[in-house]
Every structure is written in C-alpha cells, then in structure tokens.
Design a protein around this nucleic acid. Sequence first.
DNA 1: TCTGGGGTCCTAGGACCC
DNA 2: TCTGGGGTCCTAGGACCC
Length: 417
Amino acid sequence: MSTTPSGVIRRIAHLDMDAFYASVELLRYPQLKGLPVVIGGGRRAEDETLRQTYAGHTLADIPLDEFPRLKGYTGRGVITTATYAARQFGVGSALGLMKAAKLCPQAILLPVDFQEYRKYSHAFKAIILEIAPLMEDRGVDEVYIDFTEVPGGQREGGRVLARLIQKTIFEKTGLTCSVGVAPNKLLAKMASEFNKPNGISIVLEEDVQDKIWPLACRKINGIGPKADEKLKGLGISTIGELAQKDLPWLVAQFGRKTGAWMHDAARGHDTRPVVTESEPVSMSRETTFERDLHAVRDKAELGAIFTRLCTSVANDLQRKGYVGKTIGIKLRYDDFKSVTRDQTLDTFTADAQTIRQTAGQCLKRVPLDKRLRLLGVRVGTLLKATDAENYEQNRTLPPVEHALSATNSIAKIDQLF
DNA sequence: TCTGGGGTCCTAGGACCC
DNA sequence: TCTGGGGTCCTAGGACCC
C-alpha cells in the first residue's frame, strides 16, 4: 500500500480540461456548439475581421455562414485543438491544416487566442486551489492535485472530491474537465484519459493488472514515438508485456536510468511528489516563416524578424522579472533539420541589444547555405532579477580573472603574462 | 500536402580544475 | 613509458510534453 508517514493512503489526481481551447471558443461563439470547429493557424485575419464587422453586437448573434471554413485553406500551420464534433472526421491536434481541410472542409476555422485561454486557465486553477491547496501546474489546461490530506479526498477513492472540483469548475466557468485519481501521478495521468470528456475514473493499486496492463506502452507519460518504436521492435506493445521484462534486460536495452524507470512505470510505481512551485529554466521565442527564407536573398526580412524575436524575449524576461546568461539561437532548414548554437555570457542580462548581439554571434557559427523555415532565440540559465543583483554585488573574482573577463582581446591577455 | 510554439530534461564530449 | 579520478561548466542535439 502507498501510504504517507501519517498512515493515510496517497491519492493523487490528474485533471485535464476537455478540448480546452475549443471549449473556450464555444463560450464566446455558442452558435458553433455541436459543429466541427478547428483552432489553429493564427495567421488568418478572418476572425479579426469578423469581430470588427460585428463590433458592438453580441458575438453569439453572428450567423453561422459568416465564419471561415477550412475548405480551400492554404498555408502553413497545424491544428492546436479540435472540437469533439471535428474529431469525428479524424482531425485533431498537430495535424496540418491543409490536410485537415481535405478531411473536413466544412469545419469552422478559428485562430488561436492565447490571452483568452490564459484567462480561463487562471480561473479554473484558482477554483481548484480554493478546494485543494497542493496543486502542480502542468501547462495551460492540466494540473496534478494531491488529494491525500484534503477533506473528502479519500472518500470513494477520491471520487467525491473529484466530483466537487469538476462541478465547481463547471458552475463558475462553463467548462468541463476529466479527472483521474490514483496512488501516484503516473497512474492518475493515465486514469484521466479513461472517461473523456467530463469523466472521473478511479484507479487503485490493485487495479494495475486489469486497467493498466492492457494499454499500449505509448500511454505511459514519457514514452514517446521513438521509445515506442524501439519497444515494438523488441516485441513489446502493451504495458503488461513491458512488465514481464526484468530489470537487467531493460537496463541492457535502454540504459540504467531509462531502464529502471520503465521497470517501475510498467508496475505502476511512481514516487514523484506533487510540486507546487517551480522556477523557469529558459524563455524563448521562435517563428516559422510563411515561406522559406534565404540568408542572403532575404537578409533584410530575416534581420527584422531576428531583431523582433530578441526584443520579444527581452520583454518577456523583463515583464516576468528574470535575467539570463546563456543566449542561444535555433534554426530549422527547409529539410526540417534543426541546429542550435548558444553562448554563455559572464553576466546576467535581459537587455534586448545584448541578446541581439550575442545571438548574432551565434548565428555566424551556423551554415547558412540552405533555405530556412524557422528562426528562434532563447535565453537560458535564468535567475530572478532581484537575486541577480545580489549575485553581482557579492561576486568576488580574483583580479586576473576580472581582467580576463573584461576583454576578449588576445593582445591584452598577452600583456598579463 | 508536410510537420506550431513554448517549454523541460537527458546525454555526451571536451575544457578545466583540484 | 605511460599516463588517476572526480567534479563542474559549457555546448549541441534529441526525446518528450502541453
């Protein structure tokens, strides 16, 4: 039994908002309910035009035939979310929009509106925190919640508390979610998928064999396409089959760390705590161009985008109160291969010009003969801006090191010796 | 008809230090 | 002639997740 030191059974919930972005859009445009709707792209102006045309009206009054359809869509971009009605046609997250247009041309296409989704994200998380204070943020539409010590968290294996949270979120936001409650995060995550949408499912320790073992290995959070392929090549497709393999064999196949992790995961073992606070490690901005660009021929356009990315990252850092000292770039060629370059400064910064200059140096270290489809700028090794002030003040470098870091000139370094 | 954007974590080699 | 061992930082790439 997984019990805490106090002797209570550990109950962890995973809560997943149902078709989150699409559901938020349906609150704004209720006339789209039940219809196939696809969110993605973000480069189209139709939605903005639509809203401007109907400015002063209620969005709910916009007639259906005014909405843009997927049919005839050209351009880059993938689906971010699709309504359940759209999923019937085989369109879903990560599918290219042009491909989706073939499968379901009548689907309504809306651009992504992150600001709006973030508002609802904050709202549902605030509701959860009022009921259960130990919550781990897993992105805009997911959280883990530690039910163990919460009143009602043990009743019916967690179902009573899950129902309360689900009901409160629906009453206050109009959004539905699915909840899985289990002895740990690994199992809770799988459980929340069992009964979508608007479902609750409870997994107990003794359920692993019946409810988990028949599932595909890919259902384990952490086994992606690559690991899944490799497992299949070894004749393993279900979690149950994975659980038949012993530890030395898994270690021989996947290495010490991954092998041991798979051994535990297949048995439903996971001791990771619910982490309520965390600090960012990096911040980045990247963009895929509307058409592939050439470093020489499209130099001006590329330069403008590059500067904009640097400014955006600097703004993000400043707004959130962070500084960083590893500046990096990422680019993706027309053949979809990506490369990264980075450089670590000896002071922390959130300054757009410093970022632009350092990123520019990185760019010089990369081959620029092929066409580019994406450019990105990243700042890592972050520190809270307030902590960085103390860090700089307290930093005591030996004199020679000071002189070295003050210059990049070989001549000056030579003078020291 | 190719495949978004924002992240985290891991690995692995080399530099450098003690 | 034969060349340690451990730790940390930096860099590049890749898997994976939402």
